[in-house]
Design a protein around this nucleic acid. Structure first.
Lengths: 150, 150
DNA sequence: TATTGTTATACTCTATAACTATA
DNA sequence: TATAGTTATAGAGTATAACAATA
């Protein structure tokens, strides 16, 4: 690891790749389903976990509470999720996919999985698993280094 | 690949990892060297390639001409790069690291390589190579799919 | 006092279009 | 006409702080 070349610098390579993928999927969700990425993430997590408070969604999506709040309001305004006050905690809202939200998820999920499959079409199964695992390790390392920096 | 789980969805994993790394390095460059990421990329490429026009930098950094222009102006205002009109094309500016720009690069490069090394401290040499190669393949695939979409 | 969620604000990044000056 | 670069503007995404309601 002697010299520094931008195109061989891992943070740059990661940024370039993630941005290209992010632009691709953001454009697809927007054009095909009129959903932003934060909105799509809530739909995916609500489908997986059923009823969630917004605080749950903050933890599950790693987005902050402002982003979750805005996405939740947008989805509720379109009737894709229902938001009811929590019986036990008057501050919290219990979010759930509505019928049409579930219908939307049924249409998006195959499209999302298809994009994912096309992105890694040239990869072997073990390569994909290795990539996922390495991304997780890098993310953990980045968070630990960031914490250590403060 | 039957069901869809957000945390196992590659575009999400990539986005989360890249954002964590990006936040880490952006904070480090800002605090330690008062440089934004776009500015740092110009410094790195100018050190590698010597004299460049801004159009060259657009190609080499994959940033658009507006971002390059802003970063170039900021670096010139701090005396880190010199910008002289091209003798053969009056529209173009030839950018080059100044003495103090080279000095800055000499201080940043080891820090950048050190961050990179810490991020992949748990990786073997072959794992790192495989990761870089896979990121490149995914980026290419994403660009091709985006082009096909229009 | 602390926490859930909302609103306001701001800053970065990105994208586009309008503009200039050259070619 | 087209290209190099600048400026202005607007859209996302992200971060913070102030606030209301509730615990």
């Amino acid at each position: 690891m002697g010299t520094l070349r931008l195109h061989g610098f891992l943070p740059y390579q990661l940024s370039i790749a993630a941005n290209a993928v992010s632009r691709l999927v953001a454009a697809a969700y927007q054009q095909k389903f009129d959903l932003s990425v934060p909105e799509w993430r809530l739909v995916a997590v609500l489908h997986e976990h059923g009823v969630c408070t917004q605080q749950d969604l903050v933890v599950l999506t790693l987005m902050d509470k402002v982003a979750v709040s805005r996405a939740a309001i947008a989805l509720a305004n379109r009737g894709l999720v229902t938001r009811v006050p929590d019986a036990h905690d008057g501050r919290a809202r219990r979010l759930r996919l509505s019928k049409s939200g579930q219908e939307l998820h049924r249409r998006i999920a195959p499209a999302a999985l298809d994009y994912e499959a096309q992105l890694v079409a040239s990869f072997s199964t073990s390569e994909i698993a290795a990539l996922r695992e390495m991304l997780g390790r890098i993310e953990t390392a980045a968070r630990e280094l960031a914490d250590a920096q403060d």
